[in-house]
């Protein structure tokens, strides 16, 4: 059933009041009642966001956090009707509105991104690996990658340092966020750029470790093969132990 124009107008006025706190002339409402409405809604949003972004909540001053929440509540037209999905829109809002510059926290975008990643990976739809076996030749068989991951580049290492300290360590950081099969635990790894190259070659091109080592030495022949191989074996063992690599792809076994 369609609203009458009058109902629609009243509803618009009410939502305007709730979101902005500015007098909106809601017909038939008492100012005390209206205050409660705004308080209840605002608290809901604040609770949802502070639980989704506990580190940002800790790092920002009370005033800065309130500014973020208030501006988000007032200016952002949420696309989702689900409150638990709002944190993603909050992340986008913080980025799009340059709060990192406004607050002079260069790390802020990376921080909210990092915090969002945990939720994103935790709630991502199931993805299933190709058939794999547990034993194989670590250098000559194709590894099966756990498909439930996100690989992200960060400028500030907010995953390893206190946020404000991370400003002193600006650089290229690669964060692997993945969901462990069976436990559904979300885990994080900081990856060395060389290992990112390696990881992507395995994940995207289904190459064996030896093929990737050949590729790397082709790119830079001053790299000692024995040391590279040793380093890569250590990396692969860690990735297998951490369940980023699940085993050896059955489709590629001879």
């Amino acid at each position: 059933m369609l609203y009458t124009d009058k109902t629609y107008d009243s509803q618009k006025r009410l939502t305007n009041w709730v979101r902005t706190g500015k007098e909106s002339g809601v017909p038939g409402a008492t100012s005390n009642g209206l205050k409660q409405y705004r308080r209840l809604f605002r608290n809901n949003i604040n609770n949802s966001l502070s639980q989704a972004y506990p580190i940002s909540f800790e790092v920002l001053s009370d005033e800065e956090w309130s500014t973020l929440v208030d501006e988000f509540f007032e200016k952002h037209d949420a696309k989702t009707p689900h409150i638990w999905k709002l944190p993603f829109e909050f992340y986008q809002f913080v980025k799009a509105n340059n709060f990192s510059e406004k607050f002079n926290y260069p790390f802020l975008n990376d921080l909210v991104h990092f915090e969002w990643l945990e939720i994103e990976v935790y709630t991502m739809p199931n993805e299933y690996p190709q058939p794999y076996v547990k034993s194989g030749d670590i250098l000559n068989n194709v590894l099966e990658v756990n498909p439930e991951y996100r690989l992200t580049q960060l400028e500030y290492p907010v995953h390893m340092y206190a946020a404000k300290e991370s400003v002193n360590h600006k650089g290229d950081y690669f964060l692997l966020t993945y969901r462990e099969p069976k436990t559904f635990d979300v885990k994080f790894m900081n990856l060395d750029p060389l290992h990112v190259l390696f990881f992507e070659k395995v994940a995207n091109e289904n190459l064996t470790a030896n093929q990737i080592i050949d590729f790397i030495i082709d790119q830079n022949n001053s790299i000692p093969r024995d040391k590279l191989t040793k380093s890569i074996i250590g990396f692969l063992e860690t990735m297998i132990k951490e369940k980023v690599f699940l085993g050896y792809a059955e489709n590629y076994l001879n």
Binding site: D185, V186, I223, L228, G234, E242
Partner: peptide, 20 residues
């Protein structure tokens, strides 16, 4: 690649950071 070629013995920065 350059970093590795210059100092192949350096400890890589790859590190498991644990769960969320």
């Amino acid at each position: 690649l350059l970093t590795f070629s210059v100092n192949a013995d350096a400890r890589p920065s790859t590190q498991a950071l644990g769960n969320g």
